[in-house]
């Protein structure tokens, strides 16, 4: 398993979760955990995913998610989970 964190931030609208999930399914990325909230009108979602079985390299995944983000009017980032555990866990 290679865990990655996907973060979505942007103005709320219909279909953000749907759009992101469909794209992840297409890339064969499994969603392990989801947290979503609206902060000051901003849609904020974090997803923990497993990218071990993904069809594409992390580069391509990032490019595709960027395109999807532009389409939905949100910013999507995906990065390896290690960076968060390294910073916050002893």
């Amino acid at each position: 398993m290679i865990r990655a964190i996907l973060t979505v931030i942007g103005k709320d609208r219909v279909g953000i979760i749907a759009g992101v999930s469909v794209e992840l399914a297409r890339l064969n990325i499994n969603i392990l955990d989801v947290s979503q909230t609206i902060m000051n009108d901003y849609f904020t979602m974090m997803m923990m995913c497993d990218i071990a079985q993904a069809k594409e390299s992390i580069n391509t995944i990032q490019e595709k998610m960027n395109v999807k983000g532009d389409e939905l009017g949100v910013k999507i980032m995906i990065q390896r989970e290690d960076i968060f555990t390294a910073m916050h866990k002893l």
């Binding site: 964190i5 973060t7 955990d33 947290s35 904020t44 974090m46 923990m48 980032m77 960076i83 968060f84 910073m87 916050h88």
Partner: peptide, 11 residues
């Protein structure tokens, strides 16, 4: 998944 920590790192 600690969202506050993730948000802090990203910020």
């Amino acid at each position: 998944m600690d969202t506050a920590q993730i948000a802090e790192t990203i910020r």
